[in-house]
């Protein structure tokens, strides 16, 4: 085995691209869960975003419109979940799983005639001088705009949750919907907005997958990314900054195991493929055993149904 053939710089660059879809989806779900709603349909919303973004980009020739349309469609399909759980008080776990099933099927139907087509190119930005710097140039200045957007979004969500009144209201609703309702906040309306935001982020993550990362449309192409996004939210104990760590760690282990194989490491690929999931469990346990912090961050009303009886 020749480990020196693995370059840390290229590893970091490729892990950032590999992690961005799950980071975007996880950020959306983080807001949803902070509002006290558990939407297990991330996978379904992602794949709808992937197919709709792809169709829009191919039709219009603009990847930017593709991202926009992917986000809109992700939000649109999340409204099924929102209406069922918020107005009709359906169970969130079952509805979320149903959304995944529905989304996967609908995406295949929509994308039927879009297989085997190349989408318009979405190129990396290249800043003269800066992007050509050794090491730093590629890691800091050598990405496509969506990666910078995902980082900016992380910061914006952190700012929103901790520094704005809107964030305070959102957290209050997630903490105790009855108390928030008594204070005069429109619990259901806030949650509808949060769910739509989550759907848009998942759709954006899906569109990144089909427009940049793969870039192709193929049935079932999300291949479980939505579930990973869900894991990362809890892993991050509902903090946006930690979501980045979680997503990059997961993407990093995935990319690293393929690199180790290419370098000739003779361990069964099956065992190597387990490592991202085992790593997630271990970090989860370490974080969770710090009971005080965990309980401070977990939204107390998560997954509970709200009905305004008065």
């Amino acid at each position: 085995m020749d480990l020196s053939s693995i370059s840390p710089v290229t590893l970091i660059v490729s892990l950032m691209a590999a992690s961005t879809p799950i980071l975007l989806a996880a950020l959306g779900e983080l807001i949803v869960e902070k509002s006290g709603v558990l939407n297990l349909g991330v996978e379904g919303m992602m794949i709808i975003g992937a197919v709709c973004g792809f169709i829009a980009a191919v039709t219009t020739g603009s990847p930017w419109l593709g991202f926009l349309f992917g986000a809109i469609c992700g939000a649109a399909v999340s409204m099924i979940f929102a209406v069922l759980t918020q107005y009709l008080m359906a169970n969130q776990v079952a509805t979320g799983l149903g959304l995944t099933m529905f989304g996967l099927g609908l995406a295949s139907l929509l994308g039927h005639s879009y297989t085997g087509i190349n989408p318009p190119l979405f190129s990396q930005i290249h800043i003269p001088v800066l992007s050509d710097l050794p090491v730093v140039g590629r890691i800091v200045f050598g990405h496509d705009p969506m990666i910078y957007f995902s980082l900016a979004l992380t910061f914006a969500i952190w700012y929103f949750l901790t520094r704005t009144r809107g964030g305070l209201v959102l957290r209050a609703v997630g903490e105790s919907h009855d108390a928030a309702h008594a204070l005069g906040y429109k619990v259901i309306r806030i949650r509808m907005l949060a769910i739509a935001f989550g759907g848009a982020c998942a759709g954006l993550g899906g569109a990144y997958l089909s427009l940049v990362r793969v870039p192709q449309w193929a049935e079932g192409m999300t291949a479980g990314a939505g579930w990973i996004a869900l894991a990362i939210v809890v892993f991050a104990s509902w903090k946006p900054g930690r979501a980045i760590i979680g997503a990059y760690l997961f993407g990093g282990v995935t990319v690293l195991q393929l690199n180790l194989q290419a370098a000739g490491l003779a361990i069964s690929p099956a065992y190597l493929s387990m490592t991202p999931y085992l790593a997630t469990i271990i970090v989860l346990v370490i974080m969770a055993s710090d009971k005080k912090r965990q309980s401070l961050n977990a939204p107390a009303s998560l997954g509970k149904t709200f009905f305004a009886s008065t």
Binding site: S14, V214, A223, T254, Q261, A262
Partner: peptide
């Protein structure tokens, strides 16, 4: 250099595998 993806069809993983091979 051989990378075993342990899948017949997983676009994300296949892209990663190609990338890892190119990097090496």
């Amino acid at each position: 250099k051989v990378v075993w993806a342990y899948t017949w069809f997983d676009p994300g993983k296949e892209a990663d595998a190609a990338n890892a091979l190119i990097e090496q």
